[in-house]
Every structure is written in C-alpha cells, then in structure tokens.
C-alpha cells in the first residue's frame, strides 16, 4: 500500500517536471524559418549539381579541355560529353556537356579528377521539376547563356 502511493507520488512528480520543461519552450526564441520569405545561408561547400567554371580572365569561356576523365570516372555514368577538332585550336573543343542529375550521387569524383579544375559544385538546392528531362542539365549551354 505504501509502495503504491510512493509510485503515485514520484510518477506524478516526474510528469509535472516534464510538463515544466515543455512549458519553458514557450519562452524561448522562435527558430522556425519562414522559407520562401526568409532563407538560410547556404554553405560554400554545399554540393549542388556540377557546373563548368568560367575562366577568370575571359568570363565567357570555360576551362574544359574535353579530356573525358569525369565521364570515365563517374560511378553512376551520368556524364556525357562530346568534342570536336577545330581549325587553329589546339586539342579538342567541347561541343556538348550533359549531366543527368537524376543519376548523380554527388560523390565529387568528377570535381576531384578534373585536371584543369573546370568543374565545381553549384549552390543550387532548389531542384524542382515536373519531368525527368528537367534534370538533364546541359552545362555547356549554361556557360554560354551566362547562367
């Protein structure tokens, strides 16, 4: 009988302590971020989809030399690039760089392997689309259009 009331007492006390802890939350600052109106800062190391880095001296140009290392090393096989030989230009000229972002697992192998550091991760986190093709990025066109 005595134990019964002891359990009732300690149990009731533990519940009240729990409620006090919960009630304290009312007086703490609000941490919710009202997303479309407020935005958090995205860290510079964030891994979004890859993009072709523009040359510092000539911003309209990229640094890709069409060596195809990224295409070969990609574990998911989501990179397809094409190049052609042009008059008066040493090496190949990039004609097409397609990234199938639906398959990409953001491991960073392409960024690491690139000999000219032509690739980098973007900070784009709002990847939304209605069709699969919305995530087939054409990185070369992004450079040309100045995105």
């Amino acid at each position: 009988m005595k134990d019964y009331f002891a359990v009732l007492f300690t149990g009731g006390k533990s519940l009240i302590i729990g409620m006090i802890i919960t009630l304290r939350e009312f007086f703490r600052p609000v941490v919710t971020v009202q997303y479309p109106r407020e935005k958090l800062v995205v860290t510079p190391n964030y891994r979004g989809h890859t993009y072709l880095v523009r040359d510092e001296e000539k911003p309209e140009k990229h640094r890709c030399i069409t060596c195809g290392m990224c295409q070969r090393e990609c574990p998911s096989g989501c990179i397809a690039l094409g190049g052609e030989k042009r008059e008066g230009v040493k090496g190949l000229v990039l004609t097409d760089y397609r990234l199938d972002f639906t398959k990409c697992s953001l491991c960073g192998t392409c960024v690491e392997i690139c000999p000219t550091a032509a690739l980098d991760f973007s900070q784009e986190y709002r990847a939304v689309g209605l069709r699969r093709e919305d995530f087939h990025y054409d990185l070369l066109r992004m450079v040309e259009e100045g995105k």
Binding site: V7, T10, G11, G12, S14, L15, I17, G18, I21, T22
Partner: peptide, 12 residues
C-alpha cells in the same frame, strides 16, 4: 540533464 528529467525520469 533535460533529457534525463524529461525522458529517463518519466514514469510512463
């Protein structure tokens, strides 16, 4: 200590 009180100590 908060978890100690809120969870571990909770009778239920």
């Amino acid at each position: 200590p908060m978890y100690e009180k809120l969870v571990t100590g909770n009778i239920i």
